[in-house]
Design a protein around this nucleic acid. Structure first.
Lengths: 143, 143
DNA sequence: TCTATTTCAGACAAAAATGTCCGCTATTAT
DNA sequence: ATAATAGCGGACATTTTTGTCTGAAATAGA
């Protein structure tokens, strides 16, 4: 569904949202440890998220990452788009480049419905709600 | 969403379903040409589908592939499962190995709903209906 | 200023997915 | 029988994804 990079990216964003409320900026080392991901590789993904405007970063001691906007205004769809691009949202399920409602593939109609629901679900999955769940012990990020 | 292998596999199965009604067995060469896929690679995927019991194959002149069951009794979920495995149906959206309703990831609840709908959509996408759409010019497999 | 810390950038490495090639086997037709 | 055809199996090649390493740049604190 999502690439490994995207999985790490989402987990990192949720962790940052939950962590920065109490401790401010979060370091790569802390993030990688908490979400159980390879540190250097996660660094690359956080760079991407920073370039895409979803994170701010600061170098040096006390440096680290923080959300570029408040956690109530960032949703999963943005993160997926930033890391994996728009293929999940726009691409044909069967990989056809010409598939649209004018010239649909055999799965187009049914697939469009599910994809729209997936898109909606991602757009309505807000970081602060997920961070809240983590804090309350309702959900977990441990593998 | 699906791997390239899976996209080719689905397109091949739909083409076979539509083609075999009139011409019987369908050759790899014909399939690869019609669904615009690399021939040798597609051959590997058809071997998998044959091993998984979704296709029958026959060697030699007049050989080729045919559906192992009638097209009305094969759905997309079976093809996806045969080629890509069960990760799409069972795996955690964030890649956590421990994620379930007991110890859910922050996206578990919302994601489960969409995934169930995707599963249902795949189960109710039947080969003969899609083959029909192709034959009637309602849908297309050309890239 | 000097040092320690932390992110950034680019090169490099390993693994997985995608794709190719070739000889073998089974089957059909002559 | 023999030749031609078409799928099978395994090795090999390429590309993409995933992951690592190193040195540079920026920043904070002593």
């Amino acid at each position: 569904m999502f690439s490994k990079s995207c999985e790490y990216g989402i987990r990192a964003m949720i962790h940052i949202a939950q962590q920065q409320e109490t401790t401010g900026r979060v370091s790569l080392k802390d993030i990688a440890r908490e979400i159980d991901s390879p540190e250097a590789f996660t660094g690359k993904i956080l760079q991407t998220l920073t370039r895409e405007g979803l994170l701010n970063s600061l170098k040096g001691p006390t440096g680290g990452f923080e959300l570029a906007r408040e956690a109530g205004k960032i949703n999963l769809a943005e993160i997926v788009l930033a890391v994996d691009g728009d293929n999940l949202f726009n691409g044909c399920a069967l990989g056809l480049s010409t598939c649209d409602s004018e010239k649909p593939c055999p799965a187009h109609e049914k697939f469009a419905i599910v994809r729209d629901e997936l898109t909606l679900m991602l757009r309505t999955s807000i970081l602060d709600e997920m961070a809240m769940g983590l804090k309350n012990g309702v959900s977990f990020l441990t593998r």
